[in-house]
């Protein structure tokens, strides 16, 4: 065997081993590296009240209501598996709206309501001009992900 081939095999073996180790570490970190909890995660794993977390999902259409004080809003967050009620007092980002994604920072109170201290808007991977908004989305070519 030529030295060149030995080096090639050595380099490839090392690359495979390192990639394997890296991916193993990443998959072990899967839960820790998750940026937010989805309502379904909250239901299955349970999050104790008062623990600071991020809650991410879609704002349920028709659930957004403004409290009489004018600054507090109430809305429901869903991921299709579970739905969690949330409140927030303050200025929401422009892209925060019903039927769109949200990541809320805060904690659950004792009654299972998520009290958000900060809201971030999360948009999906679709981009289109305004004229196309609301038109039927071609689900065969690029489906909408349901887990978000």
């Amino acid at each position: 065997m030529k030295a060149k081939h030995q080096r090639l095999i050595l380099a490839l073996a090392a690359l495979v081993a390192i990639t394997g180790a890296g991916l193993l570490a990443v998959s072990a970190l899967r839960d820790e590296a998750a940026y937010f909890y989805a309502p379904g995660d909250v239901k299955t794993k349970g999050v104790e009240p008062g623990k600071a977390i991020r809650l991410g999902g879609m704002v349920v259409k028709g659930s957004l209501k403004r409290a009489p004080d004018g600054v507090t809003i109430r809305f429901d967050v869903t991921d299709g598996k579970a739905t969690v009620p949330a409140t927030f007092s303050g200025i929401a980002p422009d892209l925060f709206k019903e039927g769109s994604g949200v990541v809320a920072e805060g904690a659950f109170d004792g009654k299972g309501v998520f009290v958000a201290t900060n809201l971030l808007a999360k948009h999906d991977e679709r981009y289109m001009p305004r004229e196309l908004e609301g038109m039927n989305y071609n689900e065969t070519t690029h489906e909408m992900k349901t887990e978000r």
């Binding site: 998750a34 940026y35 937010f36 999360k122 948009h123 679709r126 981009y127 070519t141």
Partner: peptide
Amino acid sequence: WNSLHQGPSITLRGSS
């Protein structure tokens, strides 16, 4: 992972 960044727009299935 759950991330704030949206998923890929351009995939083998096409572009969203």
